[in-house]
Design a protein around this nucleic acid. Structure first.
Lengths: 144, 144
DNA sequence: TTCAAATCTGTAATAATAACAAAATAATGG
DNA sequence: CCATTATTTTGTTATTATTACAGATTTGAA
């Protein structure tokens, strides 16, 4: 995996490659996801973009994320029961969520790559490996 | 994996083993999950139990499922973005959801067993492998 | 049998997401 | 460059899953 916190490709290039017209709003969301590998929720994205884009609508963030996922420019994670989260890294990798602080991070462990195979006659198009537990920060916090 | 559609243990025994007092409602939900390995949503469980238990409350189903998961008598799946789903099979196994019909099934492929390990200093307590694609029924439906 | 604890129930509140229609913006053809 | 059309964005409203809560019921123990 490359740099943990940033993807070395421009948001513009990613949108074009995925056949998405690069409006200001779409670029903002795409760039946000590529520069902030924190698996943000819709609310996090909206709140972080809003100060510099005061006309931005929450609906646009929803619409844009839906478009990004459908076009393969990002993936949606259901690791968090409460909110859907989004990631600009579309290559298979493993996600972890801390039960205590709720943070979602990437883990350096390869998930099984099953896309394209048939298993029990099911055609596999996508897969996600989700791990849950305690992150280093929360593990240390409880040592006292 | 044993019989695909039923778990060979009584709901009563499972509740006792997990330290849960076996009320009528809890038994009904536990038995339903053990006899119907369909990874049902809360609504599905409620609607299926309601005819034979007309005093049952949806809130009780929510409360009971929460208790079952916390006590280790069942697991919660977040494979489906829209609804949480539940499974009485608590041993690690792989889940599949069909993009077309939404059905969730078990797959005969072993997930990586990582519980108890530390990965990147994260203490792993649980893991889920979710696969997505087209189930045999929906694959065949489109062959025409 | 009585009292306290546990459980269940129904309603009301919350919060995430989707539907929709009007306004704004961008693209196209003359 | 203007007029028309298509696309995108926006804000409001609706929907739906889930949670909070308080009163009613049931259970268990003394």
């Amino acid at each position: 995996m490359e740099n943990k916190n940033k993807i070395e490709e421009s948001g513009y290039d990613r949108l074009i490659k995925c056949g998405i017209r690069p409006s200001v709003q779409r670029l903002a969301v795409m760039n946000y996801l590529m520069e902030n590998r924190i698996h943000p929720t819709v609310d996090k994205i909206f709140n972080d973009l809003y100060p510099t884009m005061p006309t931005l609508s929450r609906t646009t963030v929803y619409n844009t994320l839906k478009l990004l996922v459908e076009s393969g420019a990002a993936i949606m994670l259901t690791i968090d029961e409460r909110n859907t989260r989004f990631d600009a890294e579309t290559k298979p990798h493993t996600h972890f969520m801390c039960y205590k602080c709720g943070t979602v991070t990437d883990l350096n462990i390869n998930p099984p790559v099953l896309k394209g195979n048939y298993i029990d006659d099911c055609e596999i198009l996508n897969s996600e490996l989700y791990l849950y537990g305690h992150c280093p920060e929360c593990v240390n916090k409880n040592k006292n």
